[in-house]
Design a protein around this nucleic acid. Sequence first.
DNA 1: GCCAACGTTGGC
DNA 2: GCCAACGTTGGC
Length: 151
Amino acid sequence: MAYWLFKSEPGVYSIADLARDKTTAWEGVRNYQARNFLRDAIKPGDLVLFYHSNAAPPGIAGLAKVVRGGYPDPSALDPTHEAYDAAGAPAAPVWYAVDIRHVRTFGAPLGLPELKKVKALAKMALLQKGSRLSVQPVTGAEFAVIEKLAT
DNA sequence: GCCAACGTTGGC
DNA sequence: GCCAACGTTGGC
């Protein structure tokens, strides 16, 4: 089993939205590095830290679980969709999605300033300078530390 | 709103 | 293939 961190702006889609929907398709990712994780590495049963970016403060808001591994991103194949990308024909998809299910919402989000204080997380991808990747791997050790901090 | 970091685009 | 210009991300 592997661990991941997905970023979302709460104004666009928050952990509360996921709690309401129960499951959702994580689609619309248009970055090749993130795409590779979605297509090749993220498997059902993997756990996902749900991160609120552009929030005050930004932080990890809860936990989700992957319920469907990589499949062609429907939003990229739908010409009427805002995130449509003509580069990917249905026969040779370029972009991928996974499905996740809400597991739990933390009592309080683990804020970025708080995470930065934790020595064991110093090497976490999220905390590296200029880390803009919206889908990131998380190590088992990092995940365990975060789970312990979560309320 | 500002701006640093980074990815992508496109001319050459 | 290089690299400048541009757009986006996301913390502050």
